[in-house]
Design a protein around this nucleic acid. Sequence first.
DNA 1: TTTCATTCGAGAGCAGTGCTCTCGCTCGGT
DNA 2: ACCGAGCGAGAGCACTGCTCTCGAATGAAA
Lengths: 232, 232
Amino acid sequence: MAAPSIRARVRAEMIDEIKAVARRHLASDGANLSLRAVARDMGMVSSAIYRYFPSRDDLLTALIIEAYDALGEAVEAADAGCDRLDLRGRWHAVCRAARDWALARPAEYALLYGSPVPGYAAPDDTIGPAQRPPLALIGILRDGFGDDRLDPPPAAEVTEPLRADLADLAGMLGGELPEALLARGMAGWTQLFGLISFELFGRINRILPHRDAYFDHQTALMADLIGLPRAD
Amino acid sequence: MAAPSIRARVRAEMIDEIKAVARRHLASDGANLSLRAVARDMGMVSSAIYRYFPSRDDLLTALIIEAYDALGEAVEAADAGCDRLDLRGRWHAVCRAARDWALARPAEYALLYGSPVPGYAAPDDTIGPAQRPPLALIGILRDGFGDDRLDPPPAAEVTEPLRADLADLAGMLGGELPEALLARGMAGWTQLFGLISFELFGRINRILPHRDAYFDHQTALMADLIGLPRAD
DNA sequence: TTTCATTCGAGAGCAGTGCTCTCGCTCGGT
DNA sequence: ACCGAGCGAGAGCACTGCTCTCGAATGAAA
């Protein structure tokens, strides 16, 4: 770590600036990021960018990782700002944080949760950061289950082929979450990003003017499904 | 209507063929449809396409409308194939039909429910066809509510700003659906397309091998939330 | 301090894209 | 039999991602 040579430092700064300019372009021009336009904005010629990113996809990947981390951080911060015992408050805080982040950066959200870019396959570097948002939700479930404070409504049992899958997944997550609860948590996660996507991609704008209220109500519905305790 | 002149007929055939070729390209090459490639595939030069579609976006719009209609038809057919009184069976049939359609035509699904193309704004022609899938779901709710056969688990009431929005929406849908039930129906719709999107965009492939079972379980969870009666 | 090699940016160029415009030809409707 | 509407071809413009080469700057070692 010591002695980051001067060259390496200006190089890192250059990379950061490229990413910053690219993020700005993403926000204004939508998802079709033009390397040449970024270069132009920096007073460089397009080929110079290739000194820093081997291809446009690599630049996109860097932006995706940063976006996942930013979203994950926003979500985790929202969770951390709550009373650990107020499970329902944490749930809503996490959901709202994800939505606020998405509404503030629609293009970056689309990059993460929209249709995958045709030729593009997400490299392994992205899977870690991508797990931070769902892990925040799972953390709430785990705390609630550990304290035996969840009271989910009844439902059909988890039957066999799926039960084993969910058990494996629970094991990877550190064990002890029952399969049915994990399934409900994933339903909540799915619902959260379905809600955000529908809102962002213009599927409910015309019919539901009060979108905040709609969002809160629907996430509360999922909190009920999971069994998060009502008003402390 | 009478006497579709020969010119008009070959023109319509031409349009159909272009759409067919474009759909093929969409399926193989992903979302970035190349007009020139389509033209090449038809043994034409690119400018000739513009005799039939004013721009690439118009061709995409035509494909989107067709895709919405195809999905709507698949969903409605699945619903129609069920005993009208088997609400839960209808629910699962509709959900599975949507998923099957999406898995068979991932690129077209991404066109409909993925991130919106940057400069592209969906014209009004699309909103009618786009409503067919959710309307199929709403139809199940309506039948169940009309026969007083729904038994949803308890939840917080729908409070004011949202209540009015949902009442308006219920009015547009032909009235009589209570707000809380409509909200649950929309939650089911959101969950359905969240599930399909997560599956299609590769967000659960690694962790849940038995995806059919997962899908059925999660849609059953939403059926419970809506209050669709269990096993007749 | 001088040299040297690494690193960088510029520029030209290739193949591809959406789209426009013009020019002839063909063929359907009168 | 005619003739004009409609059509396809072709060239061209501005743009894209990407490659390659060349000269210049500059940090690091001697």
